[in-house]
Design a protein around this nucleic acid. Sequence first.
DNA 1: GTTCCGCATGAATCGATAG
DNA 2: ACTATCGATTCATGCGGAA
Lengths: 283, 283
Amino acid sequence: MNSGSNILIGDCREQLKLVPDNSVDLIVTSPPYADQRTNTYGGVPPDKYVEWFLPISEQLLRVLRESGTFILNIKEKVVAGERSTYVMELILAMRRQGWLWTEEFIWHKKNCYPGKWPNRFRDAWERLLQFNKNRRFHMYQESVMVPMGEWADTRLRNLSTTDRLRDPSKVGSGFGKNISNWLNRERAYPTNVLHLATECSNRNHSAAFPEELPEWFIRLFTQEGDMVLDPFMGSGTTLVVAERLKRNAIGIDIVPEYCRMAKTRLSPFEGYLLEEEEEYESS
Amino acid sequence: MNSGSNILIGDCREQLKLVPDNSVDLIVTSPPYADQRTNTYGGVPPDKYVEWFLPISEQLLRVLRESGTFILNIKEKVVAGERSTYVMELILAMRRQGWLWTEEFIWHKKNCYPGKWPNRFRDAWERLLQFNKNRRFHMYQESVMVPMGEWADTRLRNLSTTDRLRDPSKVGSGFGKNISNWLNRERAYPTNVLHLATECSNRNHSAAFPEELPEWFIRLFTQEGDMVLDPFMGSGTTLVVAERLKRNAIGIDIVPEYCRMAKTRLSPFEGYLLEEEEEYESS
DNA sequence: GTTCCGCATGAATCGATAG
DNA sequence: ACTATCGATTCATGCGGAA
């Protein structure tokens, strides 16, 4: 793989074979959920989902470094009034495959899908499952610290309005010196619950997650120059963030249209697009 | 069972046999988690947990009405760097027992336990698993509606700082008349994510959950005069809330001290305490 | 009556130390 | 080696006392 961003077009069950052993520091992806996005990805029924995913997770286990992490964004749908159990069965099966199920983060979707049903509320959360190969893995906790609760309530009142309105995720880099001096002492480690809005802009992809999501995990589990992999790339949000954060990346998608879209979102001097017909095409 | 509040002292595997078939509208409980609260409840190791719980859930299935709901509050702990899988195995086993796994609510604990570890953040959420006997169950959604987001964003800005900093869950009860007039028009249905702080005040029970938690589910799944059951009553929070909301209730606990504590928290004219020696003792 | 400050207190988890 | 116990770490909350 080249440094910078690499895009592979094709079924990830095949394309993953091109990725060398122990070469990836972080896998972060959101595969098609069971029976959803059927027009683009073919749709996997719930009772076949584990069987479909295990060969993929076997490849992921191979390409991930010992110190690396795999973040899987998934949520079971409702079938006949019940939540499906395929996600739980997948976790149990992946443990038998050799994965450690280290943690389950919760993505709380602040603006979840609207709707009303007689015996169910709106679903406002998804699972972010963390898997590892080894109990010892790289984690850079300081890179995702957040303002403390009391700090936000009291100290922030004295700041200017423009400073207050800035994106909290950019705190620590965007402020002036005088304020950032406080920050080192007035910040706390986050928890395993993430509060993010879903992407509501008009992307041409059916299930784009917000940039903050891959950004948080890329900051937390990798350093500059590390390799990030998204085997279900979609419109390429993970790669865009990886490039901005100076990480190398590999994206795979079976839909050529998405691959070209992802390439245009990357900077002109990054992004190697590997077509089926040609060996690879540098830009 | 009498109307009002009933307290049974003893192991719920035995005491549940005193509860008639199809007589309970809502079960809401928080059993001792695996290997926790060992001093008071003996502690069940993770690999024995399913086996320990299934006879209890079998009784619960018997006493619950067809239209009733079972809410189970639980969270797996970390063992050897991994999350235990016993909760997932319990869900799968309870489905085989005849339960429908209808939904999983998330309790986001705003004040979670502190701590810092090299490869893990603080755990800020617990599972609230909803089980049912039947696809059709009673749900009274209007009784738990919350102020709309827009209301909080715009109207609340004009209020005092202390009011703004209050727990949003108390909005609607703590405000003055002039504001509560708006509430009836500007409310929305909640989602399946609950934001509540844990009770860390000086109760003599190690793990009392906040009153808002049983209150939310009692309002959502029962009406006045319905029967609520908590087979792991603890200090009796569920019964106190049920009494306040004019529901009948049954509480069971193996620790006599907790049962007496619960009785003192109930009003003098409610609360039948069934001791082992005497048939029952009315107050 | 308010507001502010200080303090104790948890359904935690890891690594080291002791049996 | 494998298990039991202990200290260190850390922060939102609600209480009491004081201004």
